[in-house]
Design a protein around this nucleic acid. Structure first.
Ligand SMILES: [Zn+2]
Ligand SMILES: [Zn+2]
Ligand SMILES: [Zn+2]
Ligand SMILES: [Zn+2]
Lengths: 548, 548
DNA sequence: GAATAAGGTCACCAGGTCAC
DNA sequence: GTGACCTGGTGACCTTATTC
């Protein structure tokens, strides 16, 4: 977007004038009439500060397609003054960068101002445009074609005789304000409608200007970058540093315990992706059928959870709703898909869930039975999660209520993580319970929707981190204790538990990937993604229940 | 990454020889230490003065041409200008050689700059890599595989769109310096061991020496010298040292830019909680209705938004729905509360939203008008968020679609963070638009539900971290780019952007709270909480719309 | 005197050159 | 082809002039 060319108007800035409350803005700042807080140490002597927007890039990695790189910052307006009116930041009418004032008759950035000055001072004749003399002029490409830039300057009205000296006449200021208001109102009006983007390119409200505006052109694009693309500088600071280095004794234990808990309660993991050619319906009830291995370790778990958790799978439909969907039903074949309940390819709503037996619905079955079957299919996995939770050091010390709450809220997220191995990123396919593998496209055509896509994306990114077993285990534990906390009785203890697990995870990663501590950060950033998946899932499930 | 070359910064150069200290090279005025030194005797006859190495007329002190003599630098950079800051030599991000400047968006050496230029000019198709397309690119072998070299260029972010002309903004420079120093210190401290670039430098083990020493810098940190124009005589010696590591230059800029963007686009902050006793209607359109105080500042904002974002908010109704709720309507009084729509204390559903004018509903109004009024009330704040987003370095480089998507998904979260100051944790009360403060209990009795509680909890935790303005700003930016990604066109660019912001945030926190890096982790863990709040909010909003 | 813009300065770069 | 060097800009800041 970059709206760039918008006419001159633009950007909202804040200006608070009243300073009533001292507190926050500590910065010094101040000049009243201008904006609010200013940057902290501004030392600059005589300038007003305010930094304009600059944009800078920094982009980490790039993707080749469009050059990734980065974009660049916006230059102008640096700190000096940016012109604004009541909080509005004006943009350069030529290139869309932040304007530094009213130059040669139009609001323009320092760059365009200088460019225009030079152009008229020395009677420069720029060399001909290499294209059609209609290059778009935006901040990032304004230096690519002088002829077109100059043309644009003239087009928007820059002229030596359009200069205005001295302070802005009050009257004019008022008029401007008014215009802006109108523009804004318009904006809002249309905004009622919906189409997001369309509006986007349309014009600038602002009056007159924007002559040239073509649609704006070209494309937005590009990405930024500047500096740091790399995955992380060798040393660098970072999170890990805080720990002093050495790993805490307790941490080792936590790591070990969590890891074995994970391994012993997770049977659907990678190695089993050997498609079992057949494996017809497997579950009868659930347990018995689904997996032999449950026994030993899994089965026996009942302890504290048993009481609590036992209920999870069983009781209120709630548990299901919060947890359910994802799940491969049988031990070797995970499944995965997801579709919007609304799809109804098959003439009937159907949850194309990755953990389902199959993405298709048997038209014969009644809605109720489908739902039931579906619910049961993931029960085993849910139980595994519960078992896993119980073995997380400290988890059982939480109140039963909180244990249940966390499980209700977090099981789905844990399952998503656990089933990472079930998604074949390379082939972009997912294996279902039936043992069949379906390509994402196929699933989409069957009605799978956003959730599936999102899960795929998530899985892909997670797999890309190439975590080891221990890391996966710890991460899984973190995911669980980081589940939604609303309704918890004792948030603090959960937080404490979370902290210890996080610490262990960090140490582990620091140890295993000394040069890529960013992995830790990336993992933490997966948490919000999981939360989103959880929500999408809940919504679909709800819809599914309503319209089976 | 391979080579690791630290991200750009780094290597201290030794110039022992006396000659000039790097500083000396500096030019006058700014003392910033970043400059480029140029070759000694410049042979070129006619140049404009400003050339590097030369003495400039005006400058207070002329800098003697430093000349090479003694420095031993590695290869390239010989005489030409090497960019350095206080003795730190920047390295090419592609090959690790000494960088000659910031080219195509990244610090690069002359070789890589030229190589990249040729690559993009003629649309060169290099022949396929003979190995795995993963050749490491270092100074000594950079010419061995063109395909991989070009790939590396793109990877580190070189792009025509990332070009930056003109001088480096002072403020950024300063920041950069500071960070470098810090980074260096850190590096020294912890790492003994690794030294990436060791190669280049000789090294000094560093320590203590003050590298840059001299006027400014002696110690790591601090001091910016803003004004002093180089008090120092040209000579001196300097620095040598090595090191590496370090923060990327871009980070400083990112921090500065985001911080000012935040400050300048946030008017509802703290200080304004002064209740405006009156403030009659000022605006004529919606504005008028919703809140008197909107006037001036708020009203006028149309600009940028209008153009750019105008579009953002506008499009689908979505924006509102996804964003809406939280908001103080007027510029000085924030409001905040939230209730479950389901409550219906007043006999009618009502969204007790913190950003609403009041927790109560006027029984006279129609559901529709209430909804409308409500929607409008937060318009200004939403607009501010949009404006803020636009100024996040790199945000505008995303596709329009993705910009809109992120804003739709993340505005609510950003607002929750922004309005942290509106919640009075001590008294457990929230101020509404009307200027009245309501205790949580009162709100609950009016129907506020879980969302309010959760928001309160969130706010409390966030406030407890005691973040400074810069940190809050960066965090806010991170929140936005970490919004739900489903539906994005180009997840990778968003991710890259997120990474750069995260990196900046981490550096900032590391700098400000060297002993509490856990703060960084805690902040990241706030993201899933925000996601949950967002979902609760959406649900309520949906319910509200369905049953106004 | 404060605000505000034209112009000047000069730190910095994209590109072009041309010995290797 | 490569990359050290130049040339021709570019634009962040600053100084000076003008107007309210
Ligand atoms: Zn411009
Ligand atoms: Zn052109
Ligand atoms: Zn290089
Ligand atoms: Zn190669």
């Amino acid at each position: 977007m970059d709206s760039t060319q918008a006419g001159g108007v633009i950007a909202y800035i804040s200006s608070s004038s009243s300073a009533s409350s001292p507190d926050s803005c500590h910065s010094d700042s101040s000049n009243s009439s201008y904006q609010s807080c200013s940057p902290p140490h501004t030392a600059s002597p005589s300038r007003r500060q305010g930094q304009p927007g600059e944009t800078r890039p920094v982009a980490p990695q790039s993707r080749p397609p469009r050059h990734s790189g980065g974009k660049a910052r916006s230059p102008s307006a640096a700190k000096s003054g940016i012109t604004k009116m009541n909080g509005l930041v004006l943009l350069c009418k030529v290139c869309g960068d932040v304007a530094s004032g009213f130059h040669y008759g139009v609001h323009a950035c320092e760059g365009c101002k200088g460019f225009f000055r030079r152009s008229i001072q020395q009677n420069i004749q720029y060399k001909k445009c290499l294209k059609n003399e209609s290059c778009s002029i935006m901040r990032i490409n304004r230096n690519r074609c002088q002829q077109c830039r100059f043309k644009k300057c003239l087009l928007v009205g820059m002229s030596r005789d359009a200069v205005r000296f001295g302070r802005i006449p009050k009257r004019e200021k008022q008029r401007m304000l008014l215009e802006m208001q109108n523009a804004m109102n318009n904006m809002m009006e249309n905004s009622h409608g919906n189409q997001p983007l369309s509006v986007y390119n349309q014009t600038p409200p602002l009056s007159a200007d924007s002559p040239s505006s073509r649609p704006s052109s070209t494309s937005p694009q590009s990405n930024r970058s500047e500096s740091s693309p790399d995955p992380e500088p060798p040393i660098s600071m970072d999170t890990s540093s805080d720990s002093s280095g050495a790993m805490d004794i307790g941490e080792e234990e936590v790591i070990g315990t969590v890891t074995s808990a994970h391994q012993e309660t997770f049977m659907y993991n990678q190695d089993q992706v050997n498609v079992p050619s057949e494996a017809p319906d497997n579950q009868g009830h659930f347990t018995k059928v689904w997996n032999p291995r449950v026994d030993t370790s899994s089965t026996s778990n009942q302890n504290s959870l048993s009481s609590c958790i036992a209920q999870v799978p069983q009781g209120s439909s709630q548990p299901y709703s919060s947890v359910c969907t994802i799940q491969p039903a049988c031990q070797n074949v995970p499944t995965a898909t997801y579709s919007a309940p609304t799809c109804a390819r098959a003439n009937r709503m159907h949850l194309v869930c990755p953990m389902n037996t199959s993405p298709q619905v048997d038209p014969q079955k009644s809605g109720h039975s489908i739902w039931e079957e579906f619910s049961m299919s993931f029960t085993p996995a849910v139980r595994e999660v519960v078992e896993f939770a119980k073995r997380i050091p400290g988890f059982r010390d939480l109140s039963e209520h909180d244990q249940v709450s966390l499980l209700k809220a977090g099981t789905f997220e844990v399952l998503v993580v656990r089933f990472t191995s079930l998604f074949d990123v390379k082939e972009r396919a997912v294996t279902f319970l039936s043992g069949r593998k379906y390509s994402v496209e196929a699933l989409r055509s069957m009605g799978a929707g956003d959730l599936l896509n999102s899960m795929f994306d998530f899985t892909e990114k997670l797999q890309a981190l190439n975590l080891g077993e221990e890391e996966m285990s710890l991460f899984t534990a973190v995911v669980l204790v980081s589940a939604d906390r609303s309704g918890l009785e004792n948030v603090n203890s959960v937080e404490a538990l979370q902290e210890s697990l996080i610490r262990a995870l960090r140490s582990l990663i620091t140890k295993n990937h000394p040069n890529e501590i960013a992995i830790f950060t990336k993992l933490l950033l997966k948490l919000p993604d999981l939360r989103s998946l959880n929500n999408m899932h809940s919504e679909q499930l709800l819809a599914f229940k309503v319209h089976p």
